Simulated scan of single mutants.
Amino acid sequence: MVWFETILVVLTLLTGIIWLGDKLFFAKARAERAGLLDEKEPLLVDYSRAFFPVLAVVLGLRSFVAEPFRIPSSSMMPSLLIGDFILVNKYAYGLRMPITNKKFLDIGEPKRGDVVVFRPPHHPDQDWIKRVVGLPGDTVAYRDNTVYVNGVAFKYRPIGQYVGKGKGAEMTGADLLEEALPGRPHPVLEHEDYPFGMQGDGEWVVPPGNYFVMGDNRDNSEDSRFWPTHFLPEENLRGKAFLIWLNFDMDAGGVDFSRIGSNIP
C-alpha cells in the first residue's frame, strides 16, 4: 500500500499547488480581462480546485485517523480471516507523517495483545498484521506450542476442532484453543499435522524500542520467531487494528454479513 499512499500525497500536493498558485498569481489578472474577453478558468485549475479538498480530506483521514486494510493471508486465523477488510486506528501509537512513517506526536504505546499493522524490517514496502506478545524488556519463549513471557506460561483452554471455509478451508481440523494472554484472551489455531508445525521454538529478549509479534495461526505465520532480526522496531508501526467492516471471499460465497462490524479480539 506504500505506492497508493505515495500517489495520494503527490496528487494532493500537485492539485493544491496548482489551485493556490492560480489563486495568488493568475486569477486576479484573468478577472480583470473578463470584461474584454470571454476567458474561462483553465481546465487544469478547475479540476485542481475541485479535487484538492477531497484529496486533502482523504489523505488526512488515512494518515491520522483510520486507514482500511485487507487481510490477504491466514496467519491471523481464526481472529481474522482471508478476505476481512479491517480499520486501523492511526493515532493510537502517535501521529506519523505519510510515506516516511516518522512519528511527530507521541500519544501512546502498544499493549500486550494488541493487533497491530506494521512494515516488517525485512519487507519495508509491505504492510503486515500480527499480535503483540512481547514488550520492550520482556523475555519471550515459545516451546511445545506454549508461549512464555518472563518465565510465566500462558494457559490454554481447548474449544474444539476448527472448521474453515473459503480460502481458509485448509485449516479445517486444526485445534482451536483460547490463549489466556493477560487482559486479552483470544483464539489461536494449532495444527499438529501441518507441514510447518512444531517450528519456531526458542527464547528471545526484546530490546528497548522493539516488540515481539506473533500470528494467531501458530503453525502458519511468518512472525518474530522466524525473522532475521526477530523484533519489530517501534518506528515500523502503522496503527492498531480494531474493527472488521467487511468480509468478502468468493470461495466462501461472497460477502459474510455476520462479520461486518465485529471487533477484533
Rank of each mutant, 00 (worst) to 15 (best):
W3N: 12
W3F: 15
E5D: 13
T6S: 13
T6N: 04
T6C: 10
I7A: 15
V10I: 14
T12N: 03
W19D: 09
W19Q: 08
D22L: 05
K23F: 12
A27N: 00
A31T: 08
A31C: 01
R33H: 12
L36E: 12
L37N: 01
D38T: 13
E39R: 11
K40T: 14
K40W: 08
P42R: 04
L43Y: 12
V45D: 07
D46P: 00
D46E: 12
R49P: 00
R49H: 10
A50G: 02
F52Q: 14
L59I: 07
G60R: 09
L61R: 03
R62Y: 15
R62K: 11
R62D: 08
S63G: 11
S63V: 03
V65Q: 05
P72G: 07
S73H: 11
S74L: 09
M76G: 01
S79G: 13
S79K: 04
S79M: 12
A92K: 04
A92H: 01
L95S: 04
R96G: 01
M97A: 13
M97V: 09
M97H: 07
K103T: 05
F104A: 03
F104K: 01
D106S: 11
G108W: 04
P110F: 02
R112T: 07
D114F: 07
D114W: 07
D114H: 06
V117I: 12
F118P: 10
P120W: 11
P120F: 12
P124M: 08
Q126Y: 11
Q126N: 09
Q126G: 01
Q126L: 12
R131V: 05
R131I: 05
L135M: 09
L135R: 02
V140N: 11
R143I: 06
N145E: 14
Y148Q: 13
Y148N: 10
N150E: 05
A153S: 08
K155T: 15
R157Q: 15
Q161V: 09
G164S: 10
K165C: 06
E170Y: 14
T172D: 06
A174M: 13
L177F: 08
E178S: 11
R184T: 06
P185V: 08
H186M: 06
H186A: 10
L189Y: 06
E190V: 13
E190P: 00
D193P: 00
G197E: 05
G197I: 05
M198P: 00
Q199K: 14
G200D: 06
E203C: 02
V205P: 00
G209Q: 05
G209N: 05
G209K: 04
G215S: 03
N217L: 07
R218E: 06
D219Y: 02
N220G: 02
S221I: 01
E222M: 11
S224V: 01
R225E: 08
W227E: 03
T229K: 09
T229R: 08
N236L: 05
N236H: 13
N236G: 01
G239S: 11
A241I: 06
L243F: 03
L243E: 01
W245K: 03
W245F: 15
F248Y: 15
D249F: 12
G253Y: 11
V255H: 00
D256M: 08
S258P: 01
R259E: 09
G261W: 03
S262P: 00
I264R: 01
